[in-house]
Computed example of a mutant assay.
Amino acid sequence: MRKLSGIFLVGLCVGAIGAVAITIGHGAVRPPRASAATEAVTTMSESARPSPEPTPTPSAPPKETPQETPKESAKEQPPSKVDAAELDRLVAGGEVSAVVFDRQSGAATLSVHADRAYTSASLVKLLIALTVLDRGGPTADVQRMLSRSDDDLASRFWSAYGGPAIVTAWAKKIGLGGTRAPADPGRWGDTRITAKDVVKIYQYVLAHAPAAIMSALRAATERGSDGFRQYFGIPDAAGGRPWAVKQGWSCCAPTRMLHTSGVLGEDDRYIVVVLTEHPASVSYATASKRVTAVVSALLG
């Protein structure tokens, strides 16, 4: 593979290559594969829930305390390089896509398998939130859906605000070339996405969406409403830098999806998207560590 390099995180450099990008439930229907993509399809239903493996569900519900944002900028670091093959090795037996977009320069500093298609798991909740708020829906419930990745609220909104039409409308408005509505209209987590398109969603949210969405992503709780620990990836690898995230996870046979996406750095400088697919034999705990290792590699 060719070496990738580029600047990331207040002077951090990581490589860029182009081409090909990245809640739950058991898929009954497998959507057509994207050309040159090798990943299997997992799905999400309104009734299914994964069994959180990283740590047991706490007896008391997690506190929804927003993270504290550091006031000092991250220290300048020397340039670093990341190899596309290295990212692939970090997700052994699976698939990985990553895009880092520098909002200051207006360009991606890294792009690995950016057009590769994955099932969205909870990342589609960003489009659901945009729809509900555009139509004057309940802001507090939208924020809870995002910060705690609440599936019940997502299912309620999906049914009340158009189902698959939510995806197709935003794909057309934002220009999401690789995003597709689920084949089964009731399974919102089966929405197909790419890392390139998720970056576009964040660009729109940061520029045009109500501030309530980013506020919810900054207040993401350590555990989702199902008890799953959602601080893998960007939060665990941030190293004291300010972040805001929307995470995604889904199961089961034959694969698991774990996605980390959001903004990182002062003034939300970097949009970071890492989409991954793992064999079902890989536990959630191991897969979570692999996603964090990918983000750590991107940060050098």
Rank of each mutant, 00 (worst) to 15 (best):
A219P: 03
A220R: 07
T221G: 01
T221P: 01
R223Y: 00
S225K: 05
S225D: 08
G227P: 09
R229G: 02
R229N: 05
Q230K: 07
Y231G: 09
F232A: 01
F232E: 01
F232S: 04
I234V: 10
I234C: 10
P235D: 10
D236P: 02
A237T: 06
A237I: 06
G239S: 04
W243R: 03
A244Y: 04
A244P: 08
V245Q: 00
G248M: 03
G248N: 08
W249H: 03
S250F: 01
S250E: 07
A253Q: 04
A253H: 10
R256W: 13
M257T: 13
L258D: 12
L258P: 06
H259P: 10
H259A: 10
H259C: 13
S261F: 11
G262A: 09
G262H: 14
L264G: 09
G265V: 15
G265R: 04
E266T: 10
E266W: 07
D267T: 09
D268T: 14
I271P: 11
I271C: 08
V272N: 04
V272F: 12
V272L: 15
V273D: 10
V274R: 13
V274A: 15
L275H: 13
E277A: 11
E277M: 06
E277H: 07
P279N: 06
A280I: 02
A280Q: 13
Y284F: 08
